[in-house]
Structures are given as C-alpha cells and as structure tokens.
C-alpha cells in the first residue's frame, strides 16, 4: 500500500448561534480551505451546531507552552485589586 501525500490538517472553530463566540471543535484534513470548510460542516455541524465556521491551517496556530505557564501568566497573579470584591465598602452601601 502506497502512502500517498496526505491532506494537511485544519483547526475548526464553530459558532453555535449568532451572538456567541467561535469555539474550537477539532480538526479536519483537507487539500484547501474550501474543502476544509465543507468537511468541517459535515464533521462538526451535522445537527445545526454551527451558523458559522472558521478553518485555520493547523500550522498557523501559535500557542503558549505549559512549561512557561508560571512566568508567562505571572503578571496576572499578584494583582488581586483587579477584582471588585478586593475593595471593602462601608456597610449599608448598595448598588456599587
């Protein structure tokens, strides 16, 4: 059996309905963007799960790495004052 050249991989993002964000669904293999969209529709949208689909070549995605999770997200860790409940307000104050 000859192992022919394979179709590249595309990441699929589906929007469930208008007003919602696109969410990662999985991947498909396709020779080009057009067929990737059709495959994505058949694989991830058989039950009206999508009103809109994005396909992106898998190689085009740059992701942060778990090894760097500490230092990379560190700037957010010591700024608890970004949450409103960090601040105490006098008793009896409402609507703030």
């Amino acid at each position: 059996m000859s192992k022919s050249q394979e179709w590249p991989s595309w990441e699929v993002f589906t929007q469930n309905k208008n007003g919602e964000a696109h969410e990662h669904a999985g991947n498909v293999h396709a020779p080009d963007a057009e067929i990737a969209l059709m495959n994505a529709r058949d694989v991830y949208g058989r039950r009206q799960e999508a009103v809109n689909i994005w396909v992106v070549p898998s190689t085009a995605i740059t992701a942060s790495t778990p090894e760097d999770v500490g230092s990379f997200f560190d700037p957010a860790n010591d700024k608890m004052y970004r949450w409103p409940n960090y601040f105490k307000t006098p008793d009896g104050i409402k609507q703030i």
Binding site: M1, S2, S4, W7, P31, D32, A33, E34, I35
Partner: peptide
Amino acid sequence: RRDAHENGAWVRSAALAYAEKHGK
C-alpha cells in the same frame, strides 16, 4: 477497508493537485 482506501486514492491526490495548481 483496504479497497475503499485504495479506490479513493485518486480523489485524494487529484484534490491535492488541484489545490496546488490554484495556489490555494
């Protein structure tokens, strides 16, 4: 399974050749 895979091989390579030719 093998037959299905082999018989579909020309479709897979034709689609790939088309994509390359049209620079997609």
